[in-house]
Amino acid sequence: MKIPTSKSNIVLIGMPGSGKSTVGVLLAKHLAMEFVDTDILIQTRENRDLQSIMDSEGYMALRQIEEEVLLDFDRTHHVVSTGGSAPYSQKGMENLCKNSVVVFLNVSIPVLKSRITNYESRGIAKPDHQSFEELFEERQVLYRRYADITINSDEINQDEVCEAITKAIEKDNQV
């Protein structure tokens, strides 16, 4: 897929533990762009952490707040780390996609489980009865729907993920 150079943002999507925030900071530094994490925008707006929102109002309230934050997003020249549930909001993702190259950081379940030690208190927007494996399968479809680029990052470190993203964007922008 050819990605228009008019898109000034790079949006990272993927499961919790896929490295969106860490890679986002490194990528922004490497590309001399600004960085923003939509989870932090949510927490700043609500003046509480994600788990507190879910504990008091439920996971659907968190998804609604997330959608509002995504719809309000109008920055340019940013690397954007989204929450793992961002693709549940079609309107929010459409807003991001207008001015962004969307990169899916694809990581397998075993690697994610090795990275996530605080699964129950991390603020993951999901029903209580849903297993991590069920959540993973459900979200894979959504991530692939919006991704311009997919980086399989099980076997590579964060710097290599950044390099892979940069190469994929440069390749797609060649005339």
Score class of each variant (00 low, 15 high):
130 Q>V: 14
130 Q>D: 09
131 S>M: 11
131 S>Y: 05
131 S>Q: 07
131 S>C: 06
131 S>G: 09
131 S>W: 08
132 F>W: 07
132 F>T: 04
132 F>E: 04
132 F>I: 06
132 F>V: 07
132 F>D: 02
132 F>P: 01
132 F>M: 13
133 E>V: 08
133 E>M: 12
133 E>S: 14
133 E>H: 09
133 E>R: 08
134 E>T: 04
134 E>R: 07
135 L>D: 06
135 L>K: 10
135 L>T: 10
135 L>Q: 11
135 L>W: 09
135 L>V: 09
136 F>Y: 15
136 F>N: 04
136 F>T: 00
137 E>Y: 09
137 E>M: 09
137 E>F: 06
137 E>K: 12
137 E>C: 10
137 E>G: 05
138 E>W: 04
139 R>S: 02
140 Q>Y: 03
140 Q>M: 12
140 Q>L: 10
141 V>Y: 12
141 V>E: 14
142 L>F: 14
143 Y>E: 05
143 Y>C: 09
143 Y>N: 08
143 Y>A: 06
143 Y>K: 03
144 R>L: 06
144 R>N: 08
145 R>M: 13
145 R>Y: 05
145 R>H: 14
145 R>L: 12
145 R>C: 12
145 R>P: 01
145 R>G: 00
146 Y>N: 01
146 Y>H: 02
147 A>C: 05
147 A>S: 00
147 A>W: 00
147 A>Y: 02
147 A>L: 01
148 D>W: 04
148 D>T: 04
148 D>E: 11
149 I>E: 13
149 I>L: 08
149 I>D: 05
149 I>M: 05
150 T>N: 05
151 I>D: 02
151 I>W: 02
151 I>H: 04
152 N>W: 08
152 N>V: 13
153 S>E: 10
153 S>D: 09
153 S>Q: 04
153 S>K: 00
153 S>Y: 02
154 D>N: 10
154 D>K: 00
154 D>E: 08
154 D>R: 07
154 D>H: 01
155 E>H: 15
155 E>W: 08
155 E>K: 12
156 I>H: 06
156 I>L: 00
156 I>V: 15
157 N>R: 07
157 N>M: 06
158 Q>E: 13
158 Q>D: 14
159 D>H: 14
159 D>K: 14
159 D>S: 11
159 D>N: 15
159 D>I: 11
160 E>Q: 15
160 E>L: 12
160 E>R: 15
161 V>R: 01
161 V>K: 05
161 V>T: 13
162 C>L: 06
162 C>S: 06
163 E>I: 03
163 E>Y: 05
163 E>L: 15
163 E>N: 12
164 A>N: 05
164 A>I: 07
164 A>F: 04
165 I>A: 09
165 I>F: 09
165 I>Q: 08
166 T>A: 09
166 T>L: 11
166 T>G: 12
166 T>Q: 13
166 T>D: 10
167 K>G: 07
167 K>S: 14
167 K>N: 15
167 K>M: 12
168 A>G: 11
168 A>W: 03
168 A>D: 01
168 A>F: 04
168 A>P: 02
168 A>N: 03
169 I>M: 11
169 I>F: 08
169 I>S: 04
169 I>C: 12
169 I>N: 11
